[in-house]
Amino acid sequence: MKGVLLVNLGSPDSPTPKDVKPYLDEFLMDGRVIDTPQWLRNIIVRGIILQTRPKKSAEAYSKIWWEEGSPLIVISERFAEKVKNQTKMPVALGMRYGSMSIKNALQELHDQGVNDVLLVPLYPHYAMSSFETVVVKAMEVQAENFPEIRLTTLPAFYKNEDYVKVLSDSIANGLEGFDYDHILFSYHGIPERHIRKSDPTKFHCKIDGNCCKINSVAHHTCYRHQCYDTTELVKAQLNLPDEKVSSSFQSRLAGDPWLKPYTDFEFERLAKEGKTRLAVITPAFVSDCLETLEEIAMEGEEQFKEAGGESYKHIPCLNDNDAWVSLMAKWVNQWEAKEVLPV
């Protein structure tokens, strides 16, 4: 029997330091997020970051927390329920980090007699700290606890034509009535070394802007290339002028170089260049979360206006948009019918 496992990032159980701390510990101790030797990761995470970050993060979560709970969890649950209503297969929702674990979700499917699972990482792009860690964790849990279950993974779908149209239509709706003079596509940031580590050729990715223009198998796992490609695909779909669109990367940690340009620097640069009406899109996520709702929608507006900007619009993620739900249902139903999965 076939079933579907949707997996998103996860969230603490409450916006309190007590619940944020174990969530951050699981997240930051993931070797695909902070990819240092474990002894060093222990020092960085448990010896330094977790001494102060839980309180600060809890305050940030408190700003965006809904009455029903974590926005990312609530949105993901709504999305999963809507997908479930458009397929005959069992659908379960799990999180890479936190109490809504992948193991619990697989158990839910197993208890319904499912032995053939389509794993859907809810990330449009491939990155070792998002898409890859979901796949690896799911495979580990399956091998250890559910050896009779077969896993098939939905590939990163950022360039699927149907997805690009759904994303573009959502952005167009978000822009309606807003007289922007610039649109910033802000993507989740990752360390530059992650790009090189994910390069199967070990020589193609140079992060210099030119390697993205040369066709290579490395693009299948190159997060930077896929992000810039997303911007270009949406720009073409919506006929957006080149001079009014740019891309950047948010949420870096201090220390190693991360993908550039940095979003907070772009807020200041664009304002000082005379861009006064800014729309910001966060296409690395399909569900709004702490990073989009607090860092971009709240802090981003403050940073842009402090630098001289006047109007600011954060365009929501796809969330449980009906067109996005229907597209996901189409993909999972194609898989059930043994048709080709989207690429």
Rank of each mutant, 00 (worst) to 15 (best):
P12R: 10
D13S: 01
T16P: 09
P17I: 08
D19Q: 12
Y23K: 14
D25G: 13
D25M: 15
G31M: 09
R32W: 01
T36W: 00
P37M: 07
I43Q: 07
I44D: 01
G47F: 11
G47H: 02
T52I: 12
S57H: 04
Y61K: 07
K63E: 05
W65M: 12
P71N: 13
I73T: 12
F79I: 09
N85D: 13
N85Q: 14
M89T: 15
V91K: 07
V91W: 05
M95L: 13
Y97N: 11
M100L: 09
M100I: 06
M100Q: 11
I102E: 03
H110M: 01
Q112H: 03
L118V: 04
V120R: 01
L122W: 08
Y123H: 06
A127M: 01
Q142D: 03
A143S: 15
A143Q: 15
E144S: 15
L151K: 06
T152D: 12
P155V: 06
L167E: 06
S170A: 12
N173M: 10
N173G: 08
E176I: 05
D179R: 13
D181I: 04
H182M: 11
F185P: 04
Y187F: 11
Y187C: 04
E192V: 15
I195W: 02
P200D: 10
K202Q: 15
K202W: 03
D208P: 03
G209S: 02
C211P: 02
C211E: 00
T221R: 04
T231M: 15
E243A: 12
V245D: 02
W258D: 03
P261H: 10
D264H: 13
F265M: 13
F265T: 12
E266F: 01
A271T: 14
K272S: 14
E273W: 00
T276I: 11
L278M: 01
V280F: 04
A284N: 07
L290C: 11
E291T: 13
L293D: 05
L293N: 12
E295C: 05
A297C: 12
M298H: 01
M298S: 04
E299I: 13
E299T: 14
G300N: 05
K305A: 07
G308A: 08
S311G: 01
Y312M: 01
H314M: 13
W324I: 10
M328C: 01
W331I: 03
E336I: 12
V343I: 15
V343P: 00
